[in-house]
């Protein structure tokens, strides 16, 4: 595959404009693997993203009992290792070349240096990677929904969406600035984000976001308390994740413009920041004409925060699926009955 075509194969990266493509290509290096060679292992330090030009890569994750589970292979035009550029946790899977493979490598260090300079192509690449993670999380959630491996004992009470958030008085910027997960924003960014936003309270058990909402135009940031993301099932709600202080909720829907990916309800009495979607537009859909200079430094900081949240959401969805798969094998497989 010619290098110029590589972006066309990925729906998320195809939206990069010509300037952005040129910037990414100029800052990438090449990698090549023989069949059977390992690209990276689960637990390795995540130092780069890879875009496959030719060949095929296999992804394998480990499960309890030293089992492994193979995930969908990576085909030419697809990206692997994208978490490395969005958060700083170790690799979550092992990737091996199933065929002789080559492509582009973008190092985490280079990516973050360019991002710190608000280089427009890299800012667009970051947005593309966030959309990619959002898409992959949707796919994982769709699989969880379709396979229905939940245990009835694990279901929560069904959510009531009757209640409405109530306004809360206070200094939202000060609360934002005190949250470790939002430290990138700094005091100025916290103030810029808090100014067009509103603080609201939601009581424990109340529903906030419904998967059937068709206008996902609000970002919720947890300031105090916790939110629960779940999937409606016959007999109750299947909890997928808990979001505590400093976490952003509804990011997937804001990134891809589709309906909310999960129902959201208050796991505890909450104080939330309600951020209008329009405030996020320069972050969600940057282009090379955006003013991404110093006046809007907090946009870059918020982009980092959203990227980390998307990775966190995907890790949790994967973990939930892995837990269900492993427990099912455990309970159906004989469990020492062989002894």
């Amino acid at each position: 595959m010619a290098r110029a075509d590589i972006f066309a194969q990925s729906p998320q990266l195809a939206r990069l404009d010509a300037l952005a493509r040129a910037e990414v290509l100029a800052n990438a290096t090449r990698f090549a693997l023989d069949s059977g060679q390992v690209l990276f292992r689960q637990g390795d330090v995540a130092d780069a993203l890879y875009i496959l030009e030719s060949g095929r890569l296999g992804i394998e994750t480990r499960l309890p009992g030293d089992d492994t589970a193979a995930l969908s292979p990576i085909l030419p035009g697809e990206v692997v290792g994208e978490f490395a550029l969005l958060d700083d946790a170790p690799r979550s899977a092992r990737v091996t070349a199933l065929l002789p493979s080559e492509g582009l490598r973008i190092s985490r260090a280079r990516f973050h240096a360019l991002l710190a300079d608000a280089q427009p192509g890299t800012v667009q690449l970051a947005a593309g990677l966030r959309r990619l993670v959002a898409t992959r999380t949707r796919a994982t959630l769709a699989r969880i929904a379709a396979e229905g491996r939940f245990e009835p004992s694990s279901l929560r009470r069904a959510i009531s969406f009757m209640a409405k958030p109530v306004p809360v008085a206070g200094d939202a910027a000060a609360l934002l600035a005190g949250l470790g997960k939002l430290a990138d924003l700094g005091p100025d960014g916290a103030r810029a984000l808090a100014t067009p936003s509103r603080m609201v309270g939601v009581e424990r058990g109340q529903g906030l976001v419904c998967i059937n909402d068709d206008t996902p135009n609000t970002l919720w940031i947890v300031l105090r308390g916790a939110l629960r993301a779940s999937m409606a099932r016959t007999g109750g709600a299947e909890q997928i994740s808990i979001h505590g202080p400093g976490e952003c909720v509804n990011v997937i829907a804001l990134e891809d413009g589709a309906a909310p990916s999960l129902d959201i309800a208050a796991a505890e009495d909450c104080v939330l920041l309600r951020v209008p979607g329009k405030v996020l537009q320069p972050v969600l859909q940057p282009d090379s004409t955006n003013d991404s200079g110093s006046a809007n430094d907090w946009h870059g900081a918020l982009a980092l925060v959203l990227g980390r949240q998307l990775v966190r959401d995907q890790r949790r969805a994967n973990r939930h699926l892995g837990r269900a798969l492993a427990l099912e094998r455990f309970n159906l497989g004989g469990l020492g009955g062989h002894a």
């Binding site: 637990g43 030293d66 909890q239 973990r319 892995g322 427990l327 497989g333």
Partner: peptide, 30 residues
């Protein structure tokens, strides 16, 4: 080892006993 289907032993801990926690799973919150 031995796979989940042949499992006869369980370890539960505040955190994994190895720095590589690929074969460990979190107990969900609440």
């Amino acid at each position: 080892t031995g796979g989940a289907a042949r499992a006869d032993s369980v370890i539960v801990a505040s955190e994994p006993l190895t720095s590589d926690f690929a074969t460990w799973i979190e107990v969900p919150e609440y």
